[in-house]
């Protein structure tokens, strides 16, 4: 398999007042194309930081982040913007849909930033929400909103889906539905999916499990036989 993401000696420091906090401490790992990766770790370990650096929302203090051969750490603001537009699909705990737009419009919105032909309705259909196309986010349940947000992220056919605790605000039944959807994206469409969670059970479904603690990599495990999300014991 092709390696498409590589972290080399990545450090991220936050200065608050006179003391420095190392949120990423010499982090190294690689991720292959189409992998379903789960990042585990306690709260404050640096999971979100890792995802934000990879997604181009934040910049490293030192080290290299190579995505499809490009050095993200050297990108200018404008380059980061188009990098995000083309390569990254973000999914957040609180969905972050645009409240002014209907479900369908939230997806078709992406037409303005990428040159991909987006058929909003069929994307919505793929997450099972065809009938909710004209509803506003506030009229949808949390699970439905998260599915719209996944639909929005995949509509532009990004290189990777970065999901920061995507089920954190959902009940477990709905959560499984969402995670299943994400696993399908990886298995069937070949999209690289990286999920941050603190629910260790999901590890059994992952191709690769990265555990971090205090900003450092604790372990990287490759699962030869990942299980289906729906088969796990929740």
């Amino acid at each position: 398999m092709n390696t498409i993401i590589e972290f080399k000696n990545v450090n991220k420091e936050y200065k608050s007042g006179d003391h420095i906090l190392k949120a990423m401490d010499n982090v190294n790992f690689t991720i292959d194309e189409g992998e379903f990766v789960v990042i585990l770790g306690p709260s404050g370990a640096g999971k979100s930081t890792l995802l934000n650096l990879l997604g181009g929302l934040d910049t490293v203090t030192s080290g290299e982040i190579v995505v499809k051969g490009n050095h993200v750490e050297n990108f200018s603001d404008d380059e980061l913007t188009s990098y995000r537009a083309k390569n990254v699909g973000f999914i957040f705990q609180f969905y972050n849909l645009i409240p002014n737009l209907t479900a369908l419009e939230n997806i078709e919105l992406m037409k303005d930033i990428v040159d991909v032909n987006i058929d909003g309705l069929s994307v919505l259909d793929s997450v099972g929400l065809k009938n909710h196309a004209d509803q506003f986010p506030s009229q949808l349940s949390g699970g439905e909103q998260q599915r719209v947000s996944i639909a929005r992220a995949v509509a532009k056919q990004p290189t990777m889906l970065l999901c920061d605790e995507p089920t954190g605000a959902l009940d477990s039944k709905t959560g499984v539905l969402i995670l299943n959807l994400l696993q399908d994206m990886s298995n069937n469409k070949g999209t690289t999916v990286i999920i941050v969670t603190h629910n260790a059970i999901l590890a059994e479904a992952a191709d690769k499990v990265i555990r971090i603690k205090n900003g450092q990599i604790e372990s990287i495990i490759i699962n030869e036989n990942p299980r289906k999300v729906t088969d796990l014991e929740w």
């Binding site: 913007t81 188009s82 537009a85």
Partner: peptide
């Protein structure tokens, strides 16, 4: 702010 940040994350340019 939140919406603008979201749009920025999605890859909308500052000029837009």
């Amino acid at each position: 702010e939140r919406e603008v940040a979201t749009l920025k994350v999605l890859g909308f340019k500052t000029s837009f």
